[in-house]
Amino acid sequence: MGKVGKFAKVLAYTFLTVGACLMILPFLWMLLTSFKTVAESTSMNPFVFFPNTVKWINYLEVIEKNNFVAFYYNTFAMILFRVICSLLFSAMAAYAFARLQFPGRNFLFGIVLFQMMVPTQIFIIPQYLMVDALGMRNTIFALVFPGIVSAFGTFLLRQFFLNLPKELEEAAKLDGCNIGQTFVRIMLPLTRSGLIALGIFTSLFAFKDMMWPLIINTSTESATLSSALAKIQSAISVHYPELMAASVLAIWPMLLIFMVFQKQFVEGISTSGGKL
């Protein structure tokens, strides 16, 4: 039995390590390329994995040419508002869809699902026209706009609410809580991991959304990290090291956010609902 356990453990570590190596490859590549010369970065024959000398100049050039402070500010303002909106509205709607009976529930949930089935590209021009009609191009509001509500988040949190035991609500009802109180006090804390996951995804999707900020926020100061990156990419089309330096500059805050929040998973139910 012990031997089998040890063997399983070795297998698990091997599996995870091999997988991890594959996963980290693009990031490692990005980091290494950001320190290379142009010739090193495009050379495949012979293939150059490690740069000859570390070229910090790539970073300096990119920082000098671009206003990263503005990009960080815009990106984080966008992420902040999108996360607040999507967590709040999605949690409310998800709870109603999962736990409450009301006329039109299935139909309305059908609309939520329906939205997810449509490729996002079709929304760009109609949403552009709306923001334009409001005279809101080149603002943080414009960046937040398509993410004010989230069908994805509603569907995700609904699954988490569905999985909570029914007895909880009955107990809360006996304690004299109304539906809103039950939701906020009892149910919401129990879906903590789901909320964190949604927060991470919302930030990530917002961060990666490139086409919308490119088109709606055309002035340089109102760009987000990813739209600025796309612009930098077209500017330095073959200067891969500078492009990768810009990518590293764009990515590290996201990495940090994830590293901080993924720790929350470890807590999970053991702290919030352990009494179950």
């Binding site: 109603a96 529930r105 004010i148 509500v149 539906i179």
Partner: peptide, 30 residues
């Protein structure tokens, strides 16, 4: 029951209004 209905409608309202304007109308336009 009515109380539950009202809570249900109230809680889905922001999401539904947003989805209808941002997504459903463009879908039907498409």
């Amino acid at each position: 029951k009515l109380n539950m209905w009202l809570w249900g409608w109230f809680m889905v309202a922001p999401t539904m209004i947003g989805l209808i304007f941002l997504n459903i109308i463009p879908i039907f336009q498409t």
